[in-house]
């Protein structure tokens, strides 16, 4: 434990670096996935193509993607943006399926009735479909958040600061305390993100309070991550 107390500064700065890698990937992943998921929920052909593409992208090993991104985009190898872009790709790969399921879960009667009241296309999306897709979108973004935080440790392998640094450094020096510290920090960070996202969801969806996840949302959670979190490491 002495090691932990004497390295609090490093733990804190690594955590901040980790957060800086993950937050843009999670937020952008959500923003990109919602329209794609909406499209997939409206068209069977789009659904087939997008979900297959998502599955394929998700099977690319993390280390390969982190190395490939700078080559494809021409960025310097040590730019943290490489990791964020790789994480974004994984986030979208998972989130598109959740978003497609979320929009498909909107009650057809409610949508039809809203159209009959005179909601225009954009009003229907923003005022009816998006809020009603909310609970399943929330379930999806929670999976994405945990998965992204876990995956971001791969940054250490290409020399970019993150909580993953404790793994590589600890392994090289056969120093278990450091590895365990990194592991605990990742778990705590993932838990904090989950709580924050849950609170945001609660604030945005007051009608949903006290209700349990729909069976559909639960199914989404179970199937969203085919190989389990961290399968790409």
């Amino acid at each position: 434990m002495d090691w932990v107390w004497s390295h609090l500064d490093l733990i804190w700065s690594s955590t901040l670096a980790h957060v800086a890698l993950c937050v843009p990937a999670i937020v952008l992943g959500f923003v990109v996935s919602v329209p794609l998921g909406y499209w997939a929920s409206r068209s069977t052909a789009a659904r087939g193509v997008l979900l297959t593409l998502g599955n394929v992208l998700y099977t690319i090993p993390g280390i390969a993607l982190v190395v490939l991104v700078p080559v494809v985009l021409g960025l310097p190898i040590l730019n943290p943006l490489n990791v964020t872009i790789a994480l974004l790709i994984y986030a979208v790969a998972i989130m598109v399926r959740s978003a497609a399921d979320a929009f498909a879960s909107v009650d057809a009667d409610v949508r039809g009735s809203a159209r009959a009241q005179g909601f225009s296309g954009p009003q229907l999306f923003w005022r009816v479909e998006l809020p009603l897709a909310g609970p399943v979108l929330l379930a999806g973004i929670r999976v994405v958040s945990v998965s992204t935080i876990s995956l971001a440790t791969v940054a250490a392998l290409v020399g970019i600061p993150s909580l993953g640094g404790f793994f590589t450094d600890g392994f090289q020096r056969s120093f278990a305390t450091e590895v365990v510290t990194g592991l605990v920090a990742v778990l705590v960070l993932a838990a904090v993100f989950d709580v924050v996202i849950g609170l945001i969801g609660r604030a945005l969806m007051p009608w949903n309070r006290g209700r349990r996840l729909t069976s559909r949302a639960a199914k989404t959670l179970a199937t969203a991550v085919p190989g389990g979190v961290g399968a790409n490491l």
């Binding site: 009650d107 009667d109 409610v110 039809g112 009735s113 809203a114 159209r115 009959a116 009241q117 005179g118 909601f119 225009s120 009816v128 809020p131 009603l132 909310g134 969806m205 009608w207 949903n208």
Partner: peptide
Amino acid sequence: PVALRRRIGYVMQNSGLLPHR
């Protein structure tokens, strides 16, 4: 259609109310 629907009242089975409002 949108303008037309706004001036015609519509009531359906299972109410079709917006559950989030």
